[in-house]
Design a protein around this nucleic acid. Structure first.
Lengths: 128, 128, 128, 128
DNA sequence: GTGGTCTAGACCACC
DNA sequence: GTGGTCTAGACCACG
């Protein structure tokens, strides 16, 4: 699982964001289950060929989101309950903001509500 | 027209890009007609509450693209004959990108297609 | 205001936490008002005689809490609306957890509810 | 008795300190009487789901304080004649500290004395 | 000048 | 071994 994470260094996205988002996705999609121990900071840094500090930052961000929990001297563990109300709210808020921004662009360029819905359908149908 | 340009509070897009893209769109869509004099650097900087340097950079970029032409001691002028179809395509492309980003956020947090549609409806119904 | 922050290096508390809590308090108590520009990373690092990275971490934490907002190339600004419902909820949750822990200790040692209330009163009356 | 010891999920206090203080309290309050044989390192480690090394450290610390005495090849024994008043004071001190910490959180987030009292009541009413 | 990212390495406490 | 903290310095994009 974690082995699938890779850094595509031809993106403008900072390394730590690339890794964080991939790891977040592995967790939230349930492929890394609650309680699972993640590779240590050093292991993951070696695997990704990046600095220990960069991995540390990824883990820290996900801790703050409540997705990971570290145990000193032991390791870092997945800590994600898919049904957590709080996590749900947080996600929903971010999603609303994303759509609000998109809608703002649409209005700025005078697209109609119907046109925007069609575009969303197309985009959703495209998959990634 | 130029008054419609706005800097969105924080979308991670650099200010100069936000302004440049909006200005470019105003020009290419024909809303700022060929030969029109743009506000001075100072005026636009004041209006947008951003640095003079930022506006300078925007004008410079668009000059390099041939969309603007400066006249020493006089001002900067629009220098582009729009093409309706092209303008439409440009708008649409920007809108698609906006929705693609929003949809990506939705997928990241495991929202279903239906949920995203509902959220879009809500956002659109909210107006602003 | 910010000049009042100091590191008491004889505490076991990490520097970044000491600074963060002091800065947080200055903001939440309203002494650093909304919109105010904070000293730059480098200035504060010099003032506190600590690493730039340490200050960076403080600012970052407070950004995540929504108390600060950075503007690239410009500076970091206070961003705290005392009435923000969200901030209130966040605080309240942390406070509940703190009291829950204290109450747990009380129960473990078989103190009565009344005794615990008295102790809280005493502690509150003591001020800091 | 020893079964009452528990490791609280994450209070930033190292595990070995949590266990040590609870065990010390059980001894000094007289609930674990002089001469009683404690569980073996292995047993206690299993019960607490923590490392054997951690338990070893706890026993060692308390041996150094003269509260425990090991007999080679036999086990570890309580070695302390309690003093009721002292035990009471110890408990009270721990409880005060717990409440002092909670109150500090409350002050940090600008909660009033009254609000904190209400929260305590709620927490106490909730039971566990 | 500003903040944003990243590195390489250090030392610590803990398990 | 683990994570937690901190440093000194680098380079970048931005204003």
């Amino acid at each position: 699982m974690v082995e699938d994470i890779q850094i595509t260094s031809y993106s403008n996205e900072p390394i730590y964001i690339q890794v964080r988002e991939q790891l977040r996705h592995l967790i939230m999609s349930g492929r890394l289950v609650h309680g699972l121990q993640l590779p240590s900071l050093r292991e993951l840094a070696d695997q990704l060929c990046c600095s220990l500090i960069t991995v540390r930052r990824v883990y820290l961000d996900l801790e703050h989101e409540g997705l990971l929990t570290p145990k000193k001297g032991v390791g870092t563990f997945v800590c994600y309950e898919p049904n957590a109300e709080e996590a749900r709210q947080r996600s929903e808020k971010m999603l609303y903001n994303a759509f609000r921004e998109a809608a703002q662009v649409g209005r700025r360029y005078q697209f109609s509500v119907e046109e925007m819905k069609v575009i969303l359908e197309t985009v959703l149908a495209d998959g990634v």
